[in-house]
Design a protein around this nucleic acid. Structure first.
Length: 760
DNA sequence: TCCTAACAGC
């Protein structure tokens, strides 16, 4: 049969504690806390039983002893009531009968503890807090109560209540735990400055509540966070705060220290991170610092290419006997790879697995380390060596190659132009059961596009679509750029639309590719449409984007649109760069406005930009177009003698072309000799220009000579070369020589019959 | 929950 009280409890279902806590029987058998002596135990049990009386018919005399000498039992007694309403009834009953504040405080503490154990503790604690606020004026808080309330108010971000509560406490009941809870709440609500003020009080020499491990947890946890509700910390402030705490013997744990250092390094504040780690090293020694924290700093230093400090830190680690781990070596190898010192990276790699003499023998490299090295090798054009490492990985149990391993190699072989090998590696990865990723898809699509195999790229992409892999912005950038590159704007637009309809959201780079393609194709109206779509999507133009647009408008002679772009650039805070100036100079040169071109160049120099080889090229080209080759040559001489930029083959090509057109073939030929002398490599365009010149002057012998030189320079004739030479050689009966030339044989000496280096 | 993390597009 259910007792009356149990019925009551059931009726107040929502107040009930879970069955493990709630049964009245349990309270009977529940022995009071172990510290309770046996005789006390029985009196406590008696009074609890009495209080369980469902109609709250309580005998004040029975309770009286607990209000005075034995009042320390009150929290426990209250907890045993197992019902918050009942506890409040008890509290109200006492308040009507006694002025004994301590007793009330202790009963309230018991009620709070009950609430804390309730599954809906937060709500119940808040309820008790409101109860006390509205009608519990004379209930002072014990330290424990204050702690519980501050904890729940902190969680609820009721920061003003927290502060009021804290102020009301008298100094004797304040302790570190209470301060910590307040601190936590203040940080959580973004009252950073107030929190720091409390922390300062805690640190004061004569304060009774000095910071402890929990303080460290709260404060350092806050410093390591990426997002703050209130103001974020200045990096200097972080260092200052940690120093202050360390001086008081409060250290961050290894995890927090690592987190804070990593955060500073990501903000490119290596100096502060360095200082921070060294403060902790200085005050806390090696105990406080683990390899992970050093690794965080090492990787930051690596990113900024600060090898001096990397070495210094490694030496300090050794001195302090902080043992480097695999990650430490990973950072070092990564640094060496990224600075193209791949042999040094291999040396570290071999040392650490004991293949060479060194101190670090016996560390087994992992997949990341292998991948870092393979990528480094591929980027250095040593993909074959990377392949060897792949084979080695396959023999290891814990180093199975993953998609990233294959991606690095596939990219390496693509960049080296060995598309076949790249595809072979792709098949290999499928055979091995390694799932290709989006990066695999993009690497191959891009590789195929870059080598003029757009159709194969599309084929492969379709194949992957069949497997359920969709393309992303990177995939579409590759395709769009490729189609723009072959002037197939419609196809590029088609893929742009497909990207949108497939649900892939474009990024600034895809927009850039299309804008660039349209501008190059002279379709400025379409380009402008894409620009507004880019802006609608929430992106902005960058300098590169402005440059392609300016160049496009220049080509279309839409000067007013050019100025519009320049104004917009200025308004959005972008300064024209060397490309912008070169575009303008080139345009002004082409329309023959040398006065303005010269003004633009002056402004460019005023802005601190040095004229580049492109700037000189633009001016030289402009004079050539105006058939003022003498002036062009003057600038060329100036380049050779005074400027910091020596002429390249583009400059020579412009001049050779112009001289030939001007019937000054001799001078053009001497420029070709000059190129050889200066080590500037001629290309097919150079030869085409000079061939035109010697053809017009009917210098057949010179043509033979140049053909041999062309073979020696490993330049292959193109359709323009053939156009220039075929008719001429046919007319003079030398078509055989031309055939031999195309096959790579020398032609100037009739006896020559062995192929030359062109076969390589 | 920290550190190496590698790979793709302008």
């Amino acid at each position: 049969m259910l007792s009356q009280s149990k019925l009551l409890l059931l009726r107040r279902r929502h107040w009930r504690l879970p069955s493990t806590f709630s049964s009245r029987l349990r309270c009977h058998t529940d022995s009071p806390s172990p510290s309770l002596p046996n005789d006390a135990e029985s009196t406590v049990t008696q009074v609890v039983e009495h209080l369980q009386n469902p109609w709250n018919h309580w005998d004040y005399d029975k309770l009286r002893p607990f209000l005075f000498d034995d009042s320390h039992h009150l929290p426990h007694i209250t907890r045993c009531l197992n019902s918050i309403p009942k506890a409040l009834d008890f509290l109200n009953y006492l308040r009507d009968r006694t002025e004994h504040h301590q007793a009330l405080s202790l009963v309230f503490e018991g009620a709070l503890e009950l609430a804390k154990r309730h599954p809906n503790s937060q709500k119940n604690l808040i309820m008790l807090h409101s109860y006390r606020k509205t009608n519990g004026g004379n209930i002072a808080l014990t330290s424990k109560s204050a702690c519980l309330l501050l904890q729940c108010l902190g969680k609820a971000q009721m920061v003003d209540d927290s502060l009021l509560l804290f102020k009301e406490l008298d100094c004797s009941s304040k302790n570190s735990r209470i301060c910590n809870e307040l601190l936590k709440g203040l940080f959580k609500s973004g009252r950073t400055d107030y929190a720091l003020h409390v922390l300062d009080e805690m640190l004061e020499r004569d304060s009774d509540f000095s910071p402890d491990d929990f303080t460290s947890e709260v404060v350092f946890g806050e410093l390591g966070k990426w997002e703050h509700h209130g103001r974020s910390f200045a990096d200097e402030e972080i260092v200052g705060l940690v120093t202050k705490l360390c001086e008081h013997g409060v250290f961050p744990d290894a995890f927090k220290l690592t987190q804070i250092i990593a955060k500073l390094c990501r903000h490119r504040k290596n100096g502060h991170a360095w200082e921070l780690l060294h403060v902790v090293m200085r005050f806390g020694g090696a105990v406080a610092v683990e390899a992970a924290s050093c690794n965080a700093l090492l990787s930051g230093l690596g990113r900024e290419r600060d090898i001096q400090r990397m070495n210094k830190l490694m030496a300090e680690m050794e001195e302090m006997r902080i043992k480097p781990n695999l990650v430490t070596f990973g950072i070092l190898v990564n640094y060496l790879c990224k600075t193209r010192r791949i042999d040094a990276a291999l040396e570290v790699f071999d040392k650490l697995r004991g293949k060479r003499e060194g101190n670090w023998v016996g560390v087994e490299p992992d997949v990341v380390l292998f991948n870092t090295l393979i990528d480094g090798l591929c980027k250095a054009g040593r993909e074959e060596h990377g392949l060897n490492l792949l084979q080695e990985m396959k023999t290891k149990k814990h180093c199975r190659p993953n998609a990233i391993t294959y991606n690095c190699l596939i990219d390496g072989f693509c960049k080296a132009g060995k598309i076949g090998k790249a595809r072979e590696l792709y098949s290999q990865m499928i055979e091995e059961g390694v799932e290709p990723s989006m990066v695999t898809l993009n690497t191959l699509v891009n590789g195929l596009c870059k080598h003029g195999k757009v159709n194969n790229a599309i084929e492969f992409f379709n194949e992957m679509k069949g497997k359920g892999l969709k393309g992303n912005a990177v995939t579409y950038t590759a395709l769009i750029s490729a189609f723009c590159g072959v002037n197939n704007i419609d196809k590029a637009m088609q893929y742009f639309d497909e990207m949108l309809s497939s649900g892939c959201s474009p990024d600034a780079i895809v927009y850039y590719s299309l804008i660039s393609g349209l501008s190059t194709a002279g379709r400025m109206d379409d380009a402008s449409v894409v620009v507004s779509r880019l802006k609608q999507a929430g992106f902005g133009l960058d300098v590169a984007c402005y440059n392609v647009l300016i160049s496009g408008f220049c080509k279309k002679k839409k000067l007013e649109r050019v100025y519009e772009m320049l104004d917009e650039m200025e308004k959005t805070g972008f300064k024209p760069d060397i490309v912008t100036y070169n575009t303008l100079v080139s345009y002004l040169g082409k329309i023959g406005d040398f006065a303005t071109a010269s003004k633009v160049m002056k402004r460019m120099i005023l802005e601190g930009l040095e004229p580049s080889v492109v700037t000189y090229g633009a001016i030289i080209h402009a004079y050539c177009l105006k058939e003022n080759v003498d002036e062009a040559m003057k600038i060329f001489e100036e380049m050779c003698s005074k400027s910091k930029v020596p002429p390249n083959n583009v400059i020579y090509n412009i001049l050779i072309n112009a001289l030939c057109k001007n019937s000054n073939v001799e001078r053009a030929v001497s420029l070709m000799d000059d190129m050889k002398l200066k080590g500037v490599r001629p290309n097919t365009t150079t030869y085409n220009a000079i061939f035109k010149g010697v053809r017009d002057k009917k210098m057949l012998q010179k043509a033979f000579e140049l053909m041999d030189r062309m073979i020696d320079d490993a330049c292959s004739p193109d359709y323009i070369t053939m156009e220039i030479l075929t008719e001429w050689f046919d007319a003079v009966g030398e078509i055989e020589k031309l055939k031999r030339f195309v096959e790579g044989y020398p032609v100037s000496s009739p006896s020559a019959s062995t192929p030359t280096s062109i076969c390589f």
